[in-house]
Amino acid sequence: MENVFWQKQAIDKSLRQRLNGHKSLVIWFTGLSGSGKSTIANALELELHNRGLRTFLLDGDHIRHGLNSDLGFSETDRIENIRRIGEVAKLFVGAGCIVLAAFISPYLRDRERVRFLFAANEFVEVYVKCPLAVCEQRDPKQLYKKALNGEISNFTGISAPYEEPEKPEMVIESDRETVEDAIRKIIRYLEERNCFTI
């Protein structure tokens, strides 16, 4: 971009990680509405916090109340929504935090664009897989009901597509696995990759 330059900073990501005592990364939860993304992300953040790790949770509804309140649910707006979230996650990873990002993020290409913002070991895609029928049955926000009644347009899984991840780091089958199972699985994955140490 013309007339915009990177400013060298005295404190970089590695120094922040050293101060925090652990690596920083983003754990990106994707899946249909009602699949359990936010529930698992919240429970995982609590577990990590209790272990003394610095975390930050980015959740779809929260972001749309503030940063992305100017965006709707058209394909163009969904793309911009995920682009912005990716950049925010990158800032938090740069700050030395473990970021938990819970977003439907329905398009494969958008999730891949976010992945490319990070080093190979800094992005963990968790596909919270759940059959549409189960998500519809859960319907905690009554969104499926509204979508099926024609009150909501461009609703993922009903009138808009969801593209499943091709090679996620992890798949959580939330209709078969408990939240506790999911947390243990993710923690084990992070421990095996020495994410909790420098």
Rank of each mutant, 00 (worst) to 15 (best):
16 R>F: 06
19 L>C: 15
13 K>W: 08
18 R>H: 13
80 E>N: 12
119 A>F: 13
123 F>G: 00
75 E>D: 09
62 H>Q: 13
139 D>R: 14
24 S>P: 06
58 L>D: 03
40 I>V: 11
169 E>A: 09
182 A>I: 01
53 L>Q: 05
126 V>N: 00
101 A>H: 07
16 R>W: 06
24 S>D: 03
44 L>H: 02
20 N>A: 12
177 E>P: 02
9 Q>K: 11
143 L>W: 07
83 R>C: 07
21 G>E: 09
186 I>C: 04
57 L>S: 03
100 L>M: 04
193 R>K: 14
9 Q>S: 15
117 L>Y: 09
151 E>K: 15
52 G>H: 08
72 G>C: 03
129 K>N: 15
91 L>G: 00
167 K>D: 14
2 E>V: 11
190 L>M: 06
1 M>Y: 11
27 I>F: 02
14 S>D: 11
73 F>L: 04
189 Y>A: 04
191 E>H: 03
64 R>N: 09
119 A>W: 10
90 K>P: 00
45 E>L: 12
122 E>T: 12
133 A>F: 13
113 R>I: 08
28 W>C: 05
151 E>H: 13
156 T>D: 05
128 V>T: 10
157 G>H: 01
118 F>G: 08
101 A>R: 07
152 I>D: 13
38 S>A: 04
125 E>M: 10
102 A>D: 04
79 I>Q: 13
135 C>I: 09
152 I>H: 10
142 Q>S: 14
130 C>F: 07
102 A>Q: 04
118 F>V: 14
3 N>D: 14
130 C>E: 06
55 T>N: 05
131 P>A: 05
126 V>M: 01
27 I>D: 00
49 H>F: 12
2 E>F: 10
189 Y>L: 14
146 K>N: 04
95 A>F: 01
160 A>P: 04
144 Y>P: 10
28 W>T: 04
57 L>D: 00
50 N>P: 07
164 E>T: 14
196 F>A: 03
105 S>T: 12
137 Q>D: 13
100 L>S: 01
